[in-house]
Computed example of a mutant assay.
Amino acid sequence: MASYELNAFDRRFQSISLVGAIEQVSPYTLNVGYWLRDPNQLILYPDLVASHPRLDFLWEKTCFEIFIGVQGEDYYREINLSPSQAWQAYQFEEYRYPETMPPQVAYDIELNQLKRTHYGLNVSLDLTEFMLAHKLKWSDLFIGLTAVLETSQAQQFYAMQHSGQNADFHNKRDWLHIF
């Protein structure tokens, strides 16, 4: 298991710390955990929902995200995970394309488990269809972990790194995990 400290785009914001961990389990299962430290309880959480529905625009509130890139390819996937237990997966052909809102849903990634915990969020994703359809091995993939945290002070954007002038989770340079 590899872990990464996610950093706030606003470097002055030090009130919340966030760590993400990535683990490959079985041939096509990806587990990701997010551990939050919010001693002042600034984070605003959406209400819980039942049965893990696929919902759009989860990033408008507190939302954890996983970006899956493929070495040498333009296409990628974005998975949004809400502490409400709703989720969604999107497919892009290249950087932020197609530009439709909401983005085009990806049905080649499935949710095994999504659970809000006392320390953050855990998710298990089934990448079988995505990896088999594109003939991918784990070594072909690279991962970016991000989060939008709605707080009582302002919305904060966390990522493995921020290499641009703006918070841009679609910037593949900031997806640091390789297998």
Rank of each mutant, 00 (worst) to 15 (best):
E78N: 14
H134Y: 15
S3W: 10
L136D: 01
N166F: 14
W35N: 09
D56A: 15
W87F: 09
Y90V: 05
P83M: 05
K61S: 15
Y45P: 00
L141M: 10
R77S: 13
K115I: 06
K135S: 13
E65R: 12
P27I: 03
S163G: 14
Y45E: 10
D108F: 09
Q85N: 11
V148D: 00
S17H: 05
W175K: 05
T117C: 08
L30S: 11
L44N: 05
I66P: 08
A133R: 11
S3G: 06
L48K: 15
T128H: 13
Y107A: 10
L145F: 11
K172F: 07
R116S: 13
Q85W: 01
F57R: 15
V32L: 08
N112M: 03
W175Q: 03
I178R: 13
F169M: 11
L132W: 01
L141E: 01
P53V: 08
L30P: 07
A86F: 14
P102D: 00
I143A: 03
F92T: 01
G120E: 01
I66E: 04
S82H: 11
E93I: 14
S84I: 12
M131P: 02
L125A: 02
K115M: 08
G164R: 08
C63R: 14
L55H: 09
E23H: 12
E150P: 09
H170I: 05
Y119A: 08
S26V: 07
S3C: 09
D38A: 03
L141F: 02
T29I: 08
G20N: 09
E23G: 10
T100S: 05
Q156Y: 02
S51R: 14
L176M: 14
P53N: 03
Y76T: 02
V49S: 06
M101D: 09
K137R: 11
I143Y: 02
R37Y: 03
Q71R: 15
F169V: 00
E150T: 15
F67A: 13
Y107N: 14
Y4C: 00
D47M: 12
A50C: 01
R96L: 10
F64D: 00
F64C: 02
L145E: 02
A2S: 12
F157R: 09
T151I: 08
F142K: 08
F64P: 11
M101V: 07
R54H: 05
T146F: 13
F9M: 04
A167S: 10
D74S: 15
S163T: 15
S84Y: 02
V70Y: 04
R173T: 05
L48W: 02
R37L: 10
A106P: 05
D168W: 10
Y107F: 11
S124P: 01
F130R: 06
P83V: 04
A147Y: 03
G120C: 03
A2N: 07
R116N: 07
Y97D: 08
D10A: 14
W59D: 12
R54T: 08
N40C: 06
L145Y: 04
T117G: 07
Y107Q: 14
W175D: 02
P98H: 06
T29D: 04
L81I: 06
A147K: 12
W138G: 03
